[in-house]
Each structure stands twice: as C-alpha cells, then as structure tokens.
Design a protein around this nucleic acid. Sequence first.
DNA 1: ATAATAACGAGA
DNA 2: CTCGTTATTATC
Length: 753
Amino acid sequence: MDVPLPHLDRPFDYLISAADDAVAQPGVRVKVRFAGQMVNGFLLERVESSTHAKLAYLDKVVSGERVLDPEIARLARAIADRYAGNLSDVLRLAIPPRHARVEAQPEPAAAEAAGDPAAEAARDAAAVAAHEATVEVARDAAAVASPDAGCGVADDAARDAVPDAPRDAARVVAADIKRAPDAVRDAALDAASDTAHVPVSEAASDVATDPVRHAIAEVPRDSGARPAPDVGVETAVSGTGWDDYPAGPAFLHALEQGRDARAVWSALPGEDWPARIAEVAAATVRGGRGVVVVVADARDLDRVDRALTKVLGEGRHVALHAAAGPSERYRRFLAASRRRVRVVAGTRAAMFAPVADLGLVVIWDDGDDLHAEPRAPYPHAREVLLTRAQLAGCAALVGGFARTGEAQLLLETGWAKEIVAGRDMLRARSPAVAPTGDDSQLARDPGAVTARLPSLAWQTARQALQGGAPVLVQVPRRGYLPSVACAECRMPARCPHCSGPLGLAGARAVPTCHWCGRAAAAYACPACGGRRLRASVTGARRTAEELGRAFPGVPVRTSGRDEVLDTVPGDAAVVVATPGAEPVAEGGYGAVLLLDTWALLTRADLRAAEETMRRWLSAAALARPGAAGGRVVVVADGSLAPVQALLRWEPGWFAARELAERRELGFPPAARFASLTGRAEAVAELLAAARLPQGAELLGPVPAPEDQERMLVRVSRGRAAELARALHEGAAVRSAKKAALPVRVQVDPAELL
DNA sequence: ATAATAACGAGA
DNA sequence: CTCGTTATTATC
C-alpha cells in the first residue's frame, strides 16, 4: 500500500467482487479505500478467508499486469527489514511507474517468445507454484464469515447470478512472511565468523534457504523442478576468457548446471570484463535460467550491453537505467516481467528486475559508491543482490579489479569462493608499477617541466608517448573533505574513544571526533607518538593545459564530470581523467600516472584506503602488460599498504588486511552502524521508543545541517537484524503518534565520517 | 483524513 | 448513572 508510515507497514485484507475475480491476481496494482481515502497498492496474494472481521471491497484493479513478482515481493520485504524501512518505499524502487500506453502496446518480439519452449515450461511451472501457494495459505487461514461478493447484492442473489462468485479476500501490499529473511542471510555470513550468531527462527529452517547447509559455494540446488546436477562429472566449460582463472571453467559449468555457485572475482588487469560477464550470463541462460547484472554507471552498462548482444544475440536481454525515460523504462521492465527476456543488465535500479527463474546475479565493481541507493531506505545494490541470491537460491558473482571489505567477508565466512588468476598469469598481464616520492618541488627547472610532476612520472610518460602510446593521468576530483592526520607520519588520526575520525574545525581548534563528538585535546599518534596534527588539503587540480605544457606537441584530452570519454585511440596522447571517468584505450595505455594521491588517501572517510585502492586498480588495469611496455607510476610512499597492494597486484591481500583492521576497530562490515538524523528532540524520542539490542553503542550527537543532529548506533553483526527491527518499531511508535518532526534512519549509512 | 472507541465530566 | 463531549487510536 502506498502509505510509507512505519506503523502501517503490513498487509491488509480486502474482499474481491465477482467482477474483479479473474483479473485480481497476485502482483497486480489495485486501488483501495484506506482510512477514508483512496490509495494505491499491490495485490500480494489471494486468501480464502481473513482473520479481520469486517472487510471492505477492493475498489478496483488498476490493470491486469502482474508487476509485482512473488520473488520480488519477498525480496522487498527482506530489504525493508534489513534497512529498517517500509515495504512501500522499497516497492517504489523496485517497480517503475506504470505507463498505460506502453502496457497496451503489442509485444515487439512476441512471436519469438511464444515459440520458446523453455519459456513456456517456466511459465507453467510458475503458475503451478503460485496456485499451490495460495492453497497453502488458505488452509492455514482461520475460517471467517465474510460478507459475500457481488457488489452490494444480497448473498444468495449474488451466488445465483454468478455461480462461481468468489468469496476470496485479497491480501494487499505485502506477503505475510513469518520469518525474518534478513536473519537468514546474515546468519549465513556469520556462520563462519567469530561474532555472535543470530538465532534463526524455526520457521527459517526451510531447506531452500538454510544458511548452514548452503554456506558452502556450489551446493546442488534443492529443486525438484530441475534435474539434479551431475556431481561426479567435472566437465568444465572451456574456450572462454574464464580459462585464465583456475576456478573459472568450473564456475561456468556450475551455472550451466543451474547450481547456486557463489564467487568473488578479482579481474586480471586489462581484463575485458564485460565479455566475461556476458559469458557467465550465457552459461546461465544455457542452463535454462535468468540473469541480473548490475553495474555502477551508464558507461559500464553500455559496455555490458554490447557484450551481451555479442554473446546472446539481438533481443535476448534488456538494459535498464534511469536515463531511458519513463515509457522506455516501463517497456523494458515489462520485457523482463513478461518473460520475453531472461537477462537484465542495468544500473542499481535493475537490482529488483523481475527476472523469471533467476539463476545468477552479478555485481561489477561493488565498491563504487553509485551502488548505494540515495532514496529511503537506502539499500546497497550488493546487499540487495546477495539477499536475492540467498532467497532465490541462485548463483552470485561479485566482481571487480578491487575487492571490498564486504566481498572479503563473503569469502572469509565461506559464503562465496574466490575466482582469482594464478601468479604466473597475473605476472604476464600486469603492468610494471613503480612508486615515486613527490620530488617535483626539487625540480631545478620549473619553467620547462610542469611544476608539480615528479620526474619519474614525467620520464615514464614521455617514454610511452615517444613510443606512440597514449598516457592516462588520473587526478582526484576536488572537494573531498579533508581529515586530520599525524603531522609526522601522516597516519590518519582516530578518536581514542570510538575510533571515529578526528576533525579540526579551525586552525587552532581542538581536534574533535566526527562520530562521538568528544574532544581529543591530548592526542598522540599511536604509530609514532607524534603530537602535532595537520589537516590534509586537496591540492589545486592540475589542469590539462599544465600537462599540455609538460608534453609539447602531444594532444591532451580530458574526461571528467562534464564530459566522459568512453574510449580513446591507441595513438600518442595525454588523457587526463578523474576517477571513474577513465576511457579505455585501444590496445591499452603505455603509461598510467596516478597523481595527487595524498588527497585520496587522507579523505575523511572510513573507506578512504579501500576507495583509493579501487581507483588505482581501475586505472592501472587499463595499462598494457609490463612485457608490452605498460608502466604505472603512483606518486605515493611505497611503504603504504595500498601502494604495496598495487605494486604486487594483490587486491585480495589488501582486502583481508583492511577487513582485519575494521574488525579491530569495530567498523563495517565487521560491525553494523545505523545513523539517525533529525532535530535533537525527534532523535531522542525515536531512541526512547526503540528497544535497542543488548550491547548497542550510542555515539554522538554531532551537529548536522539545518539545526539537526546525528546519532550513530553501533552493534555487532550478530545483532544487526535486531537493531533494524528496533529502529523500525521505534519509528512506528512515533508515526502512530503522528510525530511531526522527521528522523532519517539509515542502516549502513553510505558515508561514515 | 476519518471513523471507531475510550475517557471524561457535568447534571439528573 | 447516563448523556454529550472530547481525546485516542486504528486504518482491512
């Protein structure tokens, strides 16, 4: 129901008139009278009776289009629960606005779809399942004397007029899921970890999602609908780019067999990753199941889109993204929901795409902050897709050049397996990486060379250009919040009490924690004992013209926020790009320069190091292999961990180190945070109403914009589900009391300053 | 928003 | 003790 009030976040039952009986199927949009006004909703399921005494009639069925897939309904509930949000908010993200004209238009490729026997069979199987589910619910439901259908006509008359007049009720809005699906997946992640364990409710011992039995990757799928996988035969799919990874062919094979293999994939430098994703998608389709692929931005989507067309052929998949416009967006949504295509690729909006008989979810570059949804309840695409894989019992692939702490946790808990290349393959493909100190200040000849380009960087670039190869220069974007670091050793300064980052309000101000607000007047660096702090300041962005002066006669191109280049030719040119906007060069770059790294590394964000690593690896991956002359120069101290990881091309080593450190400090994903933002009295009211789990740690308040404040709540991973429930209930108490002042509740807030 | 229901207080 | 009025609460 389209009422985003926490205390009304549950299904409501309505009677269905005889006239609506046929069209009132689960998943359709409906209009109902609710609290005196007409509201929109989705029909969740048909039940024979309701425990509610006096039911109203469904006002009308908006359209017979079943836009809310049962799988998505379950997923949406799980995501709402995980993020302490409302189902209606999640459904708004999951289902695009209706476009009546598009809905009425004939299917463009209807003939092809109708002729597909596999699709036909899938449809039948799904129909049977849906029917049984309804029966199951009806048997459980308490008997109730409900007024009959028939639009106001008396009982008997109605039954006479329409012999099969239904006496059904419709459950509108949400599935009556009795277990907490969030706990299921979290328990899976916790199963092998040392943190407290979430007790899985009895109802959750449902085999299909049993976390313990399915904690090992590549478990045969528990489904009678599909022939059991061939366990004994180890036929691997070969002849694809996945042959470069020891575990690759077996993963493809598992997908063809319809098994729920789950993997974290560290792509080789220079990898044509869209082609690899197309290959896993094709393998899943060969196995008779569907695929959802989520990438961070439109540029990545274009590449995946092209690769999918190449491998699957025309009209076999759709690309979903916001830029397409409302009607096109709805058209493509319908292509998936009507089972015309089995493969959907898209930006984060595609994470809820209704793909029938889902076999695989893929997320590329899960560290990109574009994967975090900015609308309530702020779900992250990686979490949505992994929850989806867990609930649907399908395969999952988390890929990237870099590896996030969350992906590392999936490996360490045994939820997923690693797909990485062997050492030799890695050596053959990696560019030669060298660190260099920033010696530019020492340049004798500042007029001839650009003032701030270190000599090694300059020499490397010149060499590549002379060889006729393009050079990529990565410069960070301006505007990162500077944080505070030790003036001696540049170690980021953290709060002695809660490990939050320290900030300096002014030049002479006492350093203060961004999380708990405590002043750290007597701060001493834990690494070197230094007592002086400095705020790191992003240096002035080097302009393309400055670089042009450094390399006279060479064309300089830029790719950044306003104009993003997809590709550049393989000729001598300097390409200046901000992170995430690096074009792919034909044949690879001869040299990649990573400049102004200090600004990246000292950002006032928990993920500064991880993010730096991600951006370096993504840029460095565009260089040629070292054997073909590919060079990477990173202007940073060679002893820093991210630099080390880049030199040896070991994203896994870095992620493991990072995760261990976060465990130590109580950072996500080792702990779970929630932030509450609002006016002080409102935040206090919510906290008073919420029964926070044991051991919940309150940090703050710190001031927030517009006269507001922010509180952080930290709990162990094992209590994460409890925390979300408590916050949702707290919000429900407040909304039931019609509390006027809003409080924004964010579980896993995108930025933890 | 609005309807039901509980709570309350004044006058019989 | 009843009736009329007002706060409270649930919203099929």
